[in-house]
Amino acid sequence: MYVSSARLEWIPLTAPLIRLILTDRAEFAHVLGATVPANWPGEDFAPVLPLILSGFDREPHHEAWDGAILLVGEPPVLIGAMGLKGGPDEAGTVDLGYNILPAYQNHGYATEMARALIAWAFERGDVQKVIADCLPDNQGSIRVLQKAGLHELEPEDGMLRWSLSKQEWQATQL
C-alpha cells in the first residue's frame, strides 16, 4: 500500500524496513530506492521507531500506519515521515503525526502528504475522524493542519488540538 500525491510518495514503514533503519542505513536506502539524508530520521522521529517496531513485535500482522515520505525525482529523496499513529481506535479515530526535514520545510510537502493520507484513511471505511495536536508556538504545524482541513478544538494540556471528521471531509470533496 502506497499513498501518492503530485510530488510525493508515502511508503509504509514495515517491521523489516524499521529494522534496516536501525541497523543498516545503506541497505535501507537501497531497498527504498531513495537517497536518505544523514539527518533523517532526526531527533523527533528516531525515538518513535523502536516503539513502532515493538508494536509489530506484539502484533506481527498489524498493518503499517506510519510511513516515510519520498520526494519523487531521480533519485527520490526521503524528506520526512508521516503516520496515523497505529491506526484507528475503537471509534475509528486516527492521530496524525509528521515531521519534515528542515531543508524541505516551507515547500507545502507536509500539507500535500497530509491531504493525501487523510483522503486514503477516509476512503478505507474504518476511519471516521482524524485528530492531531501541536504546540501553540509551532506555526508551521498550525498552517499544515489548517491547510489540510482540520479545525481547531479547545486546547488541552498545553497543546492545540485539531479534528476533521469523515463527514466534514466528504463535504469538501463535492
Rank of each mutant, 00 (worst) to 15 (best):
Y2N: 11
Y2F: 09
Y2P: 01
V3W: 13
S4K: 11
E9K: 08
W10K: 06
W10H: 04
I11G: 07
L13W: 13
L13C: 05
T14F: 07
A15E: 15
A15Y: 13
T23A: 13
D24K: 08
A26S: 14
F28N: 13
A29N: 11
A29I: 01
H30N: 10
L32Q: 13
G33Q: 07
V36P: 09
A38V: 15
W40L: 05
W40D: 09
P41R: 08
P41F: 06
P41Q: 09
G42R: 06
E43Y: 06
A46S: 14
P50H: 06
L51I: 10
I52Q: 01
G55L: 08
R58E: 15
H62Y: 01
A64C: 07
A64S: 15
A68W: 01
I69P: 10
I69V: 15
L71R: 15
V72Y: 01
V72S: 14
E74G: 12
P76C: 14
V77C: 13
G80D: 10
G87Q: 08
G87K: 00
E90S: 12
A91V: 07
V94K: 02
L96W: 05
Y98F: 13
N99K: 02
I100Q: 02
Y104R: 05
T111G: 04
A114D: 03
A116F: 01
L117Q: 09
F122T: 02
F122L: 03
R124N: 14
G125C: 03
G125L: 02
V127T: 12
K129R: 15
I131R: 09
I131T: 04
A132L: 04
D133T: 03
L135K: 06
D137M: 11
N138Y: 05
S141Q: 04
I142S: 05
Q146W: 12
K147D: 02
A148F: 08
E156W: 05
E156Q: 07
M159G: 02
R161Q: 15
W162K: 04
W162S: 09
S163A: 13
E168Y: 05
A171C: 12
T172H: 09
T172P: 04
